[in-house]
């Protein structure tokens, strides 16, 4: 059974259709990367999955749980959206760490607030947060505030923060696009590490080598539709569609 199933998803802003009828599914433990030029709808797709945008049509299902079905659910209550989005974690391009909290506090904040509602032990939350930060290679940075960290370190804190709530699927929205080139490696490494640990992930990225390296499946989007999808060997090494070929050749020209 697929862990995520998206069917006929649509999203327009005013009269511009940004996502036009997207369907795909993924299995537990898979890493899916979405590639495509700016404006192809990749980011909007992630934002729809995380309920930062409300789709105009289609269906989103995680495991047995239908999170969104435009034909059935006409309005979503704030409270139900809050629960539904917990199936997903999202790592932003611009990190969006909370500046007034240390790295450790950033990771602990949401679990602590959850615990107030659901119960649970403070000690466990701290242990788990520390473990996540260690896993990100930040054991000596836990007490630092975001402005004291490099971009790469901030993004790793953000990854730990997203993992702290144990999402079923972790989404990355161009996680290295805001980083200096020499800092992208450390972030890609931890994402790759998560991939080998079979974290289910959707990654929007412009790093083609990384996508090739880490993905079980690559999706190429253009103009709000999925143009081509398959293994990295199929989509990146031997693209069939004219638009994919065009995009990849532009990419390799740019990157010499």
């Amino acid at each position: 059974m697929p862990v995520l199933e998206v069917r006929n998803l649509k999203k327009s802003f005013d009269s511009t259709e940004v996502i036009h009828d997207i369907s795909f599914s993924m299995e537990e433990g898979e890493t899916v990367t979405i590639i495509g030029s700016s404006g192809s709808g990749k980011t909007t797709l992630l934002r729809c999955l995380n309920f930062l945008e409300r789709p105009d049509g289609g269906m989103i299902k995680v495991k047995d749980d239908v999170l969104f079905d435009n034909d059935v659910i006409k309005s979503l209550s704030v409270e139900s959206v809050r629960k539904k989005r917990l199936h997903f974690g999202l790592v932003f391009q611009s990190f969006n760490l909370f500046p007034q909290y240390t790295a450790l506090e950033n990771v602990m904040l949401a679990p602590r607030l959850m615990q107030k509602e659901n119960g649970g032990a403070e000690g466990e939350i701290k242990e788990r947060a520390e473990e996540l930060l260690r896993q990100m290679g930040l054991e000596d940075r836990m007490g630092n505030y975001p402005h004291e960290l490099s971009g790469g370190q901030q993004q790793r804190v953000a990854i730990a923060r997203a993992l702290a709530l144990n999402p079923d699927i972790l989404c990355f929205d161009e996680p290295t696009s805001a980083l200096d080139p020499e800092l992208t490696g450390e972030v890609l490494r931890v994402i790759k590490d998560l991939s080998t640990r079979h974290m289910t992930m959707i990654i929007v990225t412009h790093e083609m080598d990384f996508a090739h390296d880490v993905s079980d499946k690559v999706i190429f989007m253009d103009g709000g539709v999925i143009v081509e999808e398959g293994t990295p060997q199929e989509v990146i090494d031997a693209p069939k569609n004219e638009r994919t070929i065009q995009f990849l050749s532009n990419y390799s020209k740019r990157n010499g």
Binding site: V78, R82, F88, F92, F98, L109, A110, M114, A162
Partner: peptide, 9 residues
């Protein structure tokens, strides 16, 4: 948005 995706009210 960071707060929202972390399930905060």
């Amino acid at each position: 948005e960071a707060g929202q995706v972390l399930g905060m009210t």
